[in-house]
Computed example of a mutant assay.
Amino acid sequence: MDIKTYWNNFKTEHPEVTTNDYEAFSLGGEDDIEEQDSLANLIKNGIKTATTSAYDLYKQDETDPLPQVGEYGIILDGHNQPTCITKTVVVETVPFNQVSAEHAYHEGEGTRGLDEWRKDHWKFFKQEYADEHHPFNEELPCVCEVYKVVYK
């Protein structure tokens, strides 16, 4: 099903939603279909209810604004097919080394522990910053977003 039809089906079932503002996206590596499918399924099944991104890299890309409470997202799988719609319920910015164990748990990946979260995200953010020719350290701000599935 195409994204626009999926959104319109959601709006038909939820007439209280009057906006047509949403972002359609997949999570995971750009070319990693298996990872995108896995993360989409974790979200759809309510296991992954949070994500973390690098605050400083939002400033680099003016076409990708910071997430806002109340925004809708259409989660795509590795084949760009809609799997569910989320609504952002919390957005906070904290240094990498202050991301909580609770947030790591809600990210829903692996053991859901903070140590594993820090190890995996350190590697990921270090590479993202390197791609932008910036060093990464544990004090840099991260955007911690919490969402809920509102349609599947």
Rank of each mutant, 00 (worst) to 15 (best):
E128P: 01
Q98S: 03
V146L: 01
E145C: 12
K126F: 04
P67H: 11
E138I: 00
V94Q: 04
R118S: 07
L76K: 08
N45W: 07
S26F: 13
L76Y: 09
K11D: 05
C142K: 00
Q81G: 13
L42Q: 05
T111K: 14
C144K: 00
D115P: 03
K119N: 15
L39M: 13
T18I: 09
D32Q: 03
V149K: 07
G28T: 08
E102D: 15
H121L: 09
I43V: 12
G108M: 02
T86Q: 10
T83K: 13
D115M: 05
V94K: 14
T18G: 12
W7D: 04
K123C: 04
N45A: 05
E109F: 12
G108F: 03
Y55D: 12
T19D: 06
E30Q: 11
Y129T: 04
G113E: 13
T88D: 09
F125D: 01
E139T: 14
G73S: 08
T51N: 13
Y22A: 05
E107P: 14
I85T: 02
E23G: 05
K48T: 03
T51F: 10
T88N: 14
D77Y: 01
T18M: 10
A130N: 11
G29E: 12
R112W: 01
V91K: 03
Q81W: 02
T88C: 15
T19F: 04
